[in-house]
């Protein structure tokens, strides 16, 4: 049981928290700007590298560098929107999707040019798990990741339910045409959507780099699970995206849970199951499978979002 918690449940929760942060942005951008933002993963990477730059230059811990990464990524998202997406506001969605694909490639190339292609950890050396939490193997970074994600999600909740701009974001996500005729300043809402999406993406990128290491494909590799999480939760439903992120993260980690334990309870070893349920190599495939199943079975997602 403890092994299960240490090796599967905790990593699932960590990965799920990171996916949740990224998926919220994907989901909100889809419902407010009406396109699938393919550069979202690379915004994560960009945030992670900004934090890396601060960590290297100022020798601060990653968590202290996080606000700088967040601010820089939000600014970058606004610039990108103005240059690459705004001219296509009235075009068909596929045009903007392709534009975002281009932005993804350019962002990644720029990151490689500036910081190189070599993966690196934020902080050298291995940190032991927290002794006070024995026998659970929980590292300080795990607390940081889940704690940061929790704080951001609560902040998002307050923004969406207590502020005029947050409510306008929900309104526009409900019905952009009605928002326009109501007199809601839709360009301002769009700008705030980018800020929120970028803040959460940067945080997701930094947290992922804290958990593993930093590399130019850090965010791009997460794009599929992010979309799967957003669709699973229901597009345009931030709380759905959180739920979807946690589910996808958990499923990916639990999928490599060795099944032999369970089978041996019955005494006989009927099948050669002395290996993971699904090979870890198929983790991402699993997210994809969930996405496909949801699109067929319940395209509006768990929380009744927009149909893709």
């Amino acid at each position: 049981m403890i092994e299960f918690i240490n090796n599967y449940l905790v990593p699932g929760l960590i990965l799920g928290s990171i996916y949740a942060l990224g998926a919220i942005g994907v989901s909100m951008i889809y419902s407010i700007l009406r396109f699938a933002h393919f550069a979202h993963g690379d915004l994560m990477t960009f945030g992670a590298y900004l934090a890396y730059a601060v960590v290297v230059a100022a020798d601060w811990p990653p968590l202290v560098a996080l606000p700088f990464a967040i601010a820089g990524t939000a600014a970058a998202a606004l610039v990108i929107d103005n240059l690459a997406y705004r001219p296509f506001r009235k075009s068909r969605p596929i045009v903007v999707v392709i534009a975002s694909f281009g932005v993804a490639l350019m962002l990644r190339a720029a990151i490689m040019l500036i910081w190189g292609v070599q993966p690196a950890p934020y902080v050298e050396g291995i940190e032991p798990p927290l002794e006070s939490l024995e026998p659970f193997r929980i590292h300080e970074k795990h607390i940081i990741i889940v704690g940061t994600a929790l704080v951001l999600v609560i902040a998002l909740h307050l923004l969406l339910t207590r502020t005029k701009m947050g409510k306008a974001m929900r309104a526009m996500s409900d019905d952009a045409d009605l928002a326009r005729v109501t007199g809601i300043g839709t360009e301002r809402v769009i700008a705030w959507t980018w800020i929120v999406g970028a803040v959460l993406a940067a945080a997701a990128g930094v947290l992922m780099a804290i958990d593993t290491q930093i590399k130019p494909t850090l965010g791009w590799d997460q794009l599929l699970p992010l979309f799967a999480a957003a669709i699973l939760g229901g597009l345009g439903r931030p709380y759905g995206a959180i739920l979807g992120g946690l589910v996808i993260g958990m499923v990916e980690e639990l999928s490599s849970y060795p099944a032999w334990d369970t089978v041996q309870i019955f005494g006989a070893k009927l099948l050669e199951l002395d290996k993971p349920i699904i090979s870890p190599g198929y983790k991402t495939g699993l997210a994809f499978a969930i996405m496909i199943i949801m699109l067929i079975w319940r395209p509006q997602g768990l929380l009744r979002g927009r149909v893709l």
């Binding site: 005029k164 409510k167 306008a168 929900r170 309104a171 409900d174 019905d175 045409d177 009605l178 928002a179 005729v181 109501t182 007199g183 809601i184 300043g185």
Partner: peptide, 30 residues
């Protein structure tokens, strides 16, 4: 809208996932 024109479309004229009060708040966005 700022100059004093307000329009009510025929269909889809409320924000369904917002509360009644929030809908009114959005009406006053400007």
């Amino acid at each position: 809208v700022r100059r004093g024109l307000a329009y009510v479309p025929q269909e889809r004229n409320v924000f369904v996932s917002l509360s009644v009060h929030e809908n009114l708040e959005m009406g006053a966005f400007v």
